[in-house]
C-alpha cells in the first residue's frame, strides 16, 4: 500500500478545498440557510406539522442530505476532472499508485469535505429550528455512507465527463430533481396515487427517509431498507470504479 501517495492526494485535495473555502463552505451554508428562512420560517409557519413534527424541523434532515449529495458530487467530480482538464493526470497515471489508493485519496477527501459541510449545516439549522436526534449513530452512519457513495458517484462522473458542461449535467439534470422529489420537503404519504408509488423508485428517497428516521423516529420506508439501499448504491459505484481502472476507460489511451 502506497500510504504516502494516499496522503499526498488526500492533502492535495483538502488543500484545494481550503483555498476555495468561500465556495466550498460558505455557499452551501448560505443556500441552506435560505431554505430554512423561506421554507422553514416563512412558508413553514403556515404548515402545521408533518407526521407530528414541526415543518421547520421536518426539513432539516432532507436539506442536509440535499446539500451533502450535491457537494459530494461536485467535489469528487471536479477533483478528478481538473487533472484531466489540466493534463496533470499524467503524473497520477505514471505514479506507482493503485486504483484503490487513488480512490481512497480523491473520494476520501471529497467525502470528508461534504461530511464537514453536513455537520456545519446541522449546526446552522440550530439557529433556525429546534430538532432532536434520536439515533445519533445512525445519523452518523447515514451521513458517512451518503458522503462516500455520492463522492464515488461524483468520481465516476468526473472521469466520464469530457467537458465542464457534462460535469454539471448529471448533478443538475438528474440528482437535483431526484433530491427535490425524494421527500426532502414533504413526506411521500402526502403525495396522491400514483406518485407515492413512483417515489419509491427514487433512490434519494431512501437516504432522506432513513436519515430523517435517525432524527425523529418516523420514516417513509423502513430504516434498514434505507441503509441497505445506500450500501447497494455504494457497491455499484465501487464496481464501476473498479471497471474504470481495469480498462483505463477515459484515463489511458
Amino acid at each position: 500500500m502506497n500510504l504516502n501517495a494516499i496522503r499526498a492526494i488526500y492533502l492535495f485535495e483538502m488543500n484545494r478545498f481550503r483555498r476555495t473555502i468561500m465556495q466550498s463552505v460558505a455557499a452551501p451554508v448560505l443556500s441552506t440557510s435560505l431554505y430554512f428562512i423561506v421554507f422553514g420560517s416563512a412558508i413553514g409557519s403556515r404548515i402545521d406539522t408533518v407526521e407530528g413534527i414541526a415543518y421547520g424541523a421536518f426539513i432539516v434532515p432532507g436539506l442536509i442530505m440535499l446539500t451533502v449529495i450535491t457537494e459530494s458530487l461536485t467535489n469528487a467530480s471536479f477533483g478528478i476532472y481538473l487533472p484531466k482538464f489540466q493534463g496533470t493526470i499524467y503524473e497520477l497515471l505514471s505514479a506507482p499508485v493503485s486504483a484503490v489508493e487513488t480512490v481512497i485519496g480523491y473520494v476520501g477527501a471529497a467525502a470528508t469535505k461534504s461530511f464537514l459541510i453536513g455537520c456545519l449545516i446541522l449546526a446552522t439549522a440550530r439557529i433556525f429550528v429546534d430538532y432532536t436526534i434520536l439515533h445519533p449513530l445512525f445519523t452518523a452512519a447515514f451521513l458517512i455512507l451518503t458522503c462516500t457513495a455520492f463522492s464515488l458517484f461524483g468520481f465516476i462522473i468526473g472521469i466520464w465527463a469530457d467537458s465542464f458542461q457534462r460535469l454539471q449535467l448529471i448533478p443538475l439534470m438528474v440528482v437535483t430533481p431526484l433530491a427535490f422529489l425524494g421527500g426532502t420537503f414533504y413526506s411521500i404519504t402526502m403525495l396522491p396515487e400514483p406518485w407515492d408509488t413512483v417515489a419509491l423508485f427514487n433512490p434519494v428517497l431512501y437516504l432522506v427517509s432513513g436519515f430523517r428516521w435517525s432524527f425523529y423516529g418516523v420514516a417513509d420506508v423502513a430504516p434498514l431498507i434505507s441503509l441497505a439501499m445506500t450500501g447497494v448504491f455504494m457497491l455499484i459505484c465501487l464496481g464501476v470504479v473498479a471497471w474504470i481502472f481495469r480498462t483505463g476507460w477515459r484515463l489511458k489511451s
Binding site: 502506497n2 504516502n4 501517495a5 496522503r7 499526498a8 492526494i9 492533502l11 492535495f12 488543500n15 484545494r16 483555498r19 481538473l82 487533472p83 489540466q86 493534463g87 496533470t88 499524467y90 503524473e91 497520477l92 505514479a95 506507482p96 499508485v97
Partner: peptide, 21 residues
C-alpha cells in the same frame, strides 16, 4: 501540465509523496 493555483513547493512535495517517498 501544471496545477496553476498550487504553490511551487507544495506541488513538488506532492509529487514525492505520490511516488511513495
Amino acid at each position: 501540465h501544471v496545477d496553476s493555483f498550487e504553490r511551487v513547493m507544495d506541488t513538488v512535495a506532492f509529487s514525492r509523496g505520490l511516488f511513495g517517498k
